[in-house]
Amino acid sequence: MDLQSVNHIENAAPKAQRHTVQFSGDAASYFSLWAVNILFTILTLGIYSAWATVRNKQYFYGHTSIDGHRFDYLATPIQILKGRILAAMCFTFYIVSSSYFPLIAALFLFIWMFAVPWVINQGLRFNLRMTRYRNVQFSFAGNYKDAFINFIVLPFLSIFTLYLAMPWVLKRIDTYIHNNIFYGDKKLTVQLTTSEYFRIAFACLFTVVGVAIVIGVFTVVLGSIDDLAQQPQLLGGIIVLFNFLMITVVAGMYQAMIRNHIFNNAQFEQVARFESNLATVDYVVLVFTNALAIVCSLGLALPWAKVRKAKMLAAATSVCVYPSAEHVINVQLESQSSFAEEAANVFDIDISLT
């Protein structure tokens, strides 16, 4: 076969089309929805929170699109409410038993440690199963053994390394989560590198040290001024502000860099591959100003902050879609319970995706 024929075949081969993720929501419309949700949740003593959760997710899913196709959130308020009631009952049992029956509470915590991997898996299954794009639903295929090793065993063992192995543990966790995601019958594959996690961890560590030094210098300088020295509350407020700055800066740095690494190394083979060019400095500024606005407004700026974040993340994300994406088969799985998802929320387990 001559070179001209090869070039003709390559040119005829279907190529991926690159699309930037679009988010069409706005702060004004979401504020109206958010305010109604808050009002009804208060009036119903929290019962309406299940409907509020569904409406919030439907708003953000429905305003997020790729190549003109929007995402759908399929969960119903009743599913969420049932799971929330069961999870709240578990939490209430723990609170009561810890006050009156310490041995039972200790046994409950021991059992809970072994239940956490199952809760995480079920929460991911429910969230992904309730997500649909182009009439094809997502799913999660993680198993208990791998979840127990990655979420319980390895973090515990990292203590004996003085947490020096924690970047590797976090890489294992992200690999486990993302490599078990399916879009219809197509598996997501990610190729994450341990060296990149250590690089990001050291960058965050050096930032913490740098900010701590600045805080220390300002504390010494301001503390030497008689007026401030006589106003410990004001000095304490300044220190709290600097610590707030440090936490938001480091959190924003880590989230932006890890997100880029995961997205730029993830693909559904012959369906789609992902790109993320989220600027670390821009995202850090957004995280800090959002947090500051929420605190200063006593929470009223939350809708504005969430929409602002969604717009930045969408604008920084691109998806290269292959023609074969049209032929993905929607695998029908059994209905998933929201109990585990709500249990994770009640017991403060973060199972969100990057």
Rank of each mutant, 00 (worst) to 15 (best):
K311G: 00
G252S: 13
N7I: 14
A115P: 00
L228Y: 12
N260C: 09
D282E: 15
S337I: 02
V250L: 14
E342C: 08
E326M: 04
M312F: 00
G223F: 11
F151C: 14
E269L: 08
I173M: 13
T20G: 13
Q58F: 01
L154S: 09
D226M: 06
G216P: 02
G25M: 08
L86W: 09
F339G: 13
A105T: 05
G216H: 07
T64R: 00
R55P: 12
N290P: 04
S24P: 03
E342Q: 10
Q267I: 10
G25D: 01
V284G: 12
F218Q: 02
N150S: 10
R199K: 15
L43S: 06
F218C: 13
Y322M: 11
D67I: 06
Y197T: 06
E334N: 06
I258Y: 04
F31V: 11
T161L: 01
L292G: 06
V220T: 10
H178M: 03
M312Q: 07
V220N: 13
Y61P: 00
W112L: 11
K306E: 09
I80V: 14
G46A: 09
N260H: 00
I38T: 12
F140C: 03
R55E: 12
G299D: 02
G216W: 03
G236W: 02
F202C: 13
Q336A: 06
T44C: 06
K187P: 04
R125H: 00
F140W: 06
K82H: 11
K309D: 03
D72K: 14
S29M: 03
L81F: 05
F198E: 08
L43D: 06
H327M: 04
V119C: 07
A115F: 02
A229M: 13
I239Q: 10
A344M: 02
F60D: 04
E342W: 01
Y183G: 00
S99F: 11
L81A: 07
F60E: 00
A212L: 15
I225M: 11
E10K: 12
Y283E: 02
A272M: 10
I262Y: 03
I95S: 11
F274Y: 07
M253L: 15
L292N: 05
L333E: 12
T131G: 04
V240A: 14
I111C: 15
Q137G: 02
D26I: 14
D26G: 05
F347I: 09
G142K: 12
V328A: 07
P14Y: 01
S158Y: 12
M257I: 15
C296K: 08
D185T: 01
S158N: 03
I85N: 02
